[in-house]
């Protein structure tokens, strides 16, 4: 699976375990809960279906089908949403069913997407272009060098099959070849990109004038004075931008002090120690700000789900 995103950062604090854990045998009370939820789900679905049918009564059959499908879908989505939220009270079968569905559906989704979006046009389209054109992508461009393209495409095909060998119980070393290719490619592009975008560009962004100037406009003296004098007085003059200068100095000091904290070749004593300590303070402010922004993100995601429940499902507002 694709390496997932920074969304995983907060993890599950408070010792809440990650998804997909082993289930405990269902107790009678939980079985009852499961049964009740299943009955509730079925009733809601039937209710939703009836509502949709009623909504669609005046329209033609095609629209009725779409409306029905949407109504059932919204009820289904609401049940799924509630199913996940029930975990907040305690672990339960309803949550586990939703979690299991999510795992299965997401794995299939990613595989199907990878197949139709990448494997078919970029691999099979070169190995057997006529077949792909006939059955899947009629407009697939015709290559000037189909034979050469096909020969080249055997390399990723072979590497791909070797990668899938990981699923076999024996011959694990076979999958190391494609793994080496993946690691080598990643290292090759990251090495250059890191130097260019993250090392040189960031150093360049740090090394800036520490004293920041700004243009200030002096208003002409009120009353009297010739037009020429007034014009001279109204021209911009360069003055020191106090807060701009503070910001620039803070930026440089911050980068250097945090780097000194990361620099372990010198013992953190004396001036280096003080600089490293200042670096820690900068880092703490950085993390504090990052925390504030993270909280905002999390709240927004929950707000969106509640909006769905209130507005799309219950029709409130």
């Amino acid at each position: 699976m694709n390496a997932r995103n920074t969304n995983d950062d907060a993890g599950q604090p408070d010792g809440c375990p990650p998804a997909a854990s082993a289930a405990t045998p269902a107790r009678p009370s939980l079985r009852f809960l499961w049964l009740s939820l299943a009955v509730l789900g079925a009733s809601l679905t039937v209710f939703g279906t009836a509502m949709a049918a009623q909504d669609a009564g005046a329209t033609d059959a095609a629209q009725a089908t779409v409306a029905l499908s949407k109504s059932i879908g919204i009820w289904c989505a609401a049940l799924m949403t509630i199913g996940i939220l029930t975990f907040l009270y305690k672990d339960n079968p309803f949550y586990k069913v939703c979690e299991s569905i999510l795992i299965g559906v997401s794995a299939a989704y990613w595989m199907v997407n990878g197949f139709w979006s990448t494997l078919v046009p970029n691999l099979f389209g070169k190995l057997m272009p006529s077949v792909v054109r006939e059955y899947a992508i009629p407009s697939l461009p015709v290559s000037d060098t189909p034979g050469f393209d096909m020969a080249l495409a055997f390399v990723p095909l072979a590497l791909g099959l070797m990668l899938l060998w990981r699923l076999a119980p024996k011959g694990g070393w076979i999958s190391v070849w494609p793994l080496a290719f993946i690691i080598g490619t990643t290292a090759g592009i990251r090495l250059v990109a890191s130097i260019e975008a993250d090392l040189l560009a960031q150093a360049s962004a740090t090394i800036r004038p520490l004293v920041v100037m700004k243009d200030s406009v002096l208003a002409p003296a009120a009353g009297g004075g010739s037009a020429a004098t007034a014009e001279m007085a109204a021209t911009a003059v360069r003055t020191v931008d106090f807060w701009g200068t503070v910001g620039a100095v803070t930026g440089v000091v911050g980068v250097l002090s945090v780097l000194s904290y990361f620099f372990f070749s010198l013992e953190h004593k004396g001036a280096v120690g003080k600089s490293a300590r200042l670096g820690v303070w900068f880092l703490m402010i950085t993390f504090g700000s990052a925390f504030g922004l993270t909280v905002m993100g999390r709240i927004t995601l929950l707000a969106q789900r509640l909006e769905f429940l209130f507005k799309d499902w219950l029709g409130l507002g």
Binding site: C76, A77, L85, V105, S106, L302
Partner: peptide, 29 residues
């Protein structure tokens, strides 16, 4: 349809749960 009404709400809600855990962590940690 499954994407729209099953996968999408499930994955969105799974991440929305983090709002609760962030609050709890803020109180405890």
């Amino acid at each position: 349809w499954i994407y729209e009404y099953v996968f999408s709400p499930l994955t969105a809600t799974m991440f929305a749960m983090l709002a609760f855990y962030v609050a709890s962590a803020a109180f405890r940690a």
